[in-house]
Design a binder for these strands. Structure first.
Lengths: 189, 189
DNA sequence: CGTCCGCTGGACCGATCGTTCCAGTCGTCG
DNA sequence: CGACGACTGGAACGATCGGTCCAGCGGACG
């Protein structure tokens, strides 16, 4: 793997755990074993450009995971497994692995419009995947768009609570709640 | 107001918008007009101790707001107004005012156990308020606890999406969804 | 084989970080 | 009124930040 890709991967991993401000170029150099010069050669825009690339990369990985999880033919099972897969990731990482971009998104909201927009794009991609899956199940138009945003909101919020409380309960309860909601939405009166 | 309180208030405001790492002691000194020496006199533990105090303070303000919003006799109206009040805050602050502790909570999850625990305590307080309100409406025990966590999750997640997308739609959709959920929960088949 | 260029390694920059220290000020109380 | 202790203002600390610069390595290609 070339030094460019190593830098992206290391940065994505560090942003995931620590966020933007806490992740220094020195730390990226150490962990990625990419020389400082190479990083600024590949990313002339410095930390901001590297972080943007790392977020897009991490977002794409997640997108693939979501796509896989949502492949199950029963929506309820799909969403449930999808949400609970994060609970597993939480447990296995000692509650360090929440959403790979949420921390950065919040930091960037006040600090970097460019990075904020990258995060917005990634969120939009996930949302589109969810909405498409809901529509495949007969939940149409605005209703699907609203429900997709609610699912993503509940997931993101639950991950904050899980990391803060060091429990997986919020994710489990959200999974349960969304299953019930989808049952009601798919078979309305 | 004494310098101690000014430091707490300024820090709370800065943490709200910028998070922990982005908020420097210099900035706190400038905005609060508390001298450097005073800050370290009142908070010998330095930035961490000051941040903890600021988070507790911000948490208490929010607790009061939640208590007020939840006073409405109809739970659905109460929760709806409660959630939509954040949408208002978002709009009026140009999407800078989300949850006053979420950003810090995520940053602290990997950086500072002490601050993480303060955040956990604040979240628990809000959650307890929600659960108590739900129980007042006949939603009992575990069901109330689960639903409380789901409401808080959806709210926190929606605020991330709102700040990142610079829209209030996620909060509005979550408000709508929770209203429907509460209707179903309060009057089960 | 010689040239060239993408890439590397590391020294170095000024700025800013959180923290320490202390002389000085001010109100209070003996 | 003198002394004391709570608090202030600011200088200064070493560490680390993101970023720049450049000599030189090494593989590809004429």
């Amino acid at each position: 793997m070339d030094s460019r890709q190593r830098a992206i991967d290391a940065t994505a991993a560090l942003l995931w755990r620590q966020g933007l401000r806490a992740t220094g170029i020195n730390q990226i150099v150490e962990e990625s074993k990419s020389p400082r010069g190479s990083i600024y050669f590949h990313f002339p825009g410095g930390k901001e450009e590297l972080a943007a690339a790392a977020l897009r990369s991490a977002g794409a990985v997640m997108t693939a995971n979501i796509r896989g999880a949502l492949a199950h033919r029963d929506v309820r099972t799909a969403v449930k497994r999808f949400v609970l897969s994060y609970a597993k990731e939480m447990r296995e990482s000692d509650f360090q692995h929440g959403c790979p971009i949420a921390t950065v998104a919040l930091e960037a909201a006040s600090a970097s419009p460019a990075i904020r927009e990258v995060c917005a794009g990634v969120f939009a991609e996930w949302d589109a995947l969810l909405v498409a899956r809901l529509e495949r199940d007969g939940i149409r138009g605005k209703k699907a768009r609203k429900l997709g945003a609610v699912i993503l909101s509940a997931l993101e919020g639950a991950m904050i609570l899980c990391r803060t409380h060091r429990t997986t309960e919020p994710l489990e309860w959200v999974a349960e709640h969304l299953t019930a909601t989808l049952t009601a939405a798919a078979a309305p009166r």
